[in-house]
Amino acid sequence: MLFETWRYIGNNWAYIGRLTVEHLQIIAVANGSAVFFGVLIGIFVSGRGRERLAQLVMYLASIMITIPSLALYGFLMGILSALGLRSIGFLPVVIALTLYGLLPIIRNTYTAITEVDPAMIEAGRGMGMSELQILWKVKLPLAVPVIMAGLRQAVVMNIGIAAIGAYIGAGGLGQLIFRGIANWRPHLIVTGAIFVSLLSIAADLLLGRVEWLATPKGIRTRGRA
């Protein structure tokens, strides 16, 4: 079977490449929007007097993660078709992955911002920075590495979940796995699994590096990652 897998990969480079690109597209769009909304929500709920809201939002986000992906896809398909939108393929999968990706990003944004040393915020305010300037010049730069760590977590997690998206026609590496199951061709399953894993590992390494680069120089605690 190993030999078959090897031969299959050798003969189908272009096809696997295309599936990988599809997979990456889903991940990029989903996690891009997860970062966008997650950071906004995280900033919003970290505001003064919103502790209870923050707890609620993070509670909801953690419940979201416990919903099995197939159930979420099904659920979203229902909603999307009711709204008259394309209910299979790319869209529902991207929405589902965005929802999954929110938790680590909201949580990390919230934690990073609320844990900025209050002395620093007081110093900033006392010197005449507006709240927006404090957010933009003090809180966010300090939160960036933690937010990036959340993104990294979300991406690695979503690469696996995205494979299941092939079941509702979103394409990607999951397609290999589902074809392998449907036609009982184990080497297809193995190929799909291998590439999903490789993608996860690559993304993890790459984002680790990005995380380090995004960390402001003065707070880097270790050497070059």
Binding site: D117, A119, M120, I121, E122, A123, G124, R125, G126, M127, G128, M129, S130, K137, V138, P141, L142, P216, K217, G218, I219
Partner: peptide, 22 residues
């Protein structure tokens, strides 16, 4: 309020230097 604060120096015990700034 911000103009008022910018017209006065302010120093605190914890110093509160911004670690990401030189």
């Amino acid at each position: 309020v911000n103009q008022l604060r910018r017209s006065m120096g302010y120093a605190i015990q914890e110093i509160g230097l911004f670690p990401h700034m030189t």
